[in-house]
Nucleic acid binder design. Structure first.
Length: 319
DNA sequence: AAACCATCCAACCGCCTCTGC
DNA sequence: CGCAGAGGCGGTTGGATGGTT
């Protein structure tokens, strides 16, 4: 409307983030926690708008982000969830805590959409144009879905989510400290998530030093000014050195004060797996994952899920 | 080796929702 | 209740990179 975009401010920088900026941002968030993004540029001196800072954090610097190729398991999850939720990438991302909504969106647009379109075309040839593609609520097919049907879907969606949560909470591992409030995360998780962040920074610095060797010392002075442990050591988060304890504690406090992250993690602590290592696909399926991936399970639901099963069963042929 | 094309993905933009006053 | 500001989200863009001709 009348309100100018925040990035219209004079002097605001745009474009790719430099490692220096990343370090400043991470250092600030480590100290103050994410949130109050409006204050970030003013308090850090970053010439970035609040939105840009938030985006950079959530999509790139946030701990626990897994980068690289999507696993087959993740692909399936995305396809199923997209069919279920439509292009609600943030919602889909909440089921894949290691991936950002932007990543999922990009992956969908560049890989999965094409894959499914190809498949859809195939089925059109095979079955005389019978609608066999994914049944996305946001797709053109969804226009034929009545409002009532859509509401039922939504209700079922909520019901299933509730059920999943209940089951996850009640059937959860007996020895887990189910008290989220007492201590949200175990230490290894913290260190591991921190390691991810550290690795992000380390990777950045690595690339950065290749490009501009002179600026690395600058970066270190920035990071050293706010924390004793250097960011450019990827092993820091994984090690069990005494100094790591300080970092872990730091990030423990950081996590607990981080509504976005801690909430995100807490959501998945019970039942819905949170794995910060690369062995995610090897882990046993959670209830929800089973539900998402098991077409037979889907078929037991109402008409929507019958439709889902029909369409998803075909998408499953992809793999 | 150079030009062209396709793909990827980080970042931006604009709209919507939520919250506080 | 209405308004304004901040955060969040989804769509889109454009630069970088890799592959092909």
């Amino acid at each position: 409307m009348g309100r100018p975009p925040c990035c219209d401010k004079i002097g605001m920088k745009k474009g790719p983030w430099t490692p220096e900026e990343d370090i400043i941002l991470v250092s600030y968030i480590q100290e103050h926690g994410p949130g109050n993004w409006r204050a970030v540029p003013t308090n850090t001196g970053l010439l970035r708008c609040s939105k840009s800072c938030r985006l950079r954090w959530t999509n790139y610097l946030r701990p626990g982000i897994k980068r690289g190729d999507f696993t087959e398991h993740e692909e399936k999850m995305i396809i199923h969830l997209q069919a279920l939720l439509g292009n609600r990438w943030a919602a889909i991302a909440s089921y894949l805590p290691q991936r950002t909504d932007n990543d999922i969106k990009n992956y969908w647009n560049t890989h999965l959409k094409k894959k499914l379109q190809k498949l859809q075309g195939h089925h059109h040839d095979d079955q005389n144009g019978k609608t066999t593609g994914i049944s996305s609520p946001s797709s053109s097919d969804s226009k034929s879905i009545s409002k009532g049907q859509w509401e039922r879907r939504l209700q079922t969606d909520i019901h299933m989510a509730k059920k999943a949560l209940c089951e996850a909470l009640s059937l959860d591992k007996p020895n887990t400290t189910s008290s989220i409030d007492s201590k949200p995360f175990s230490l290894p998780q913290q260190t591991s998530t921190y390691a991810s962040s550290t690795e992000n920074i380390a990777r950045l610095l690595e690339n950065w030093t290749k490009k501009s060797p002179n600026s690395s010392s600058q970066a270190m002075s920035v990071s050293e000014s706010t924390q004793s442990t250097s960011f450019n050591n990827p092993s820091v988060g994984l090690s069990s050195s005494p100094s790591e304890g300080a970092i872990s504690t730091n990030f423990a406090g950081f996590n607990s004060s981080n509504s976005e992250f801690s909430e995100h993690e807490a959501k998945f602590e019970n039942g819905i797996s949170v794995h910060h290592d690369e062995s995610k696909t090897e882990m046993p399926l959670s209830f929800l994952e089973k539900w998402l991936l098991d077409d037979a399970g889907v078929q037991g639901q109402d008409g929507y899920f019958m439709d889902m099963a029909a369409s998803l069963g075909e998408t499953a042929d992809l793999f």
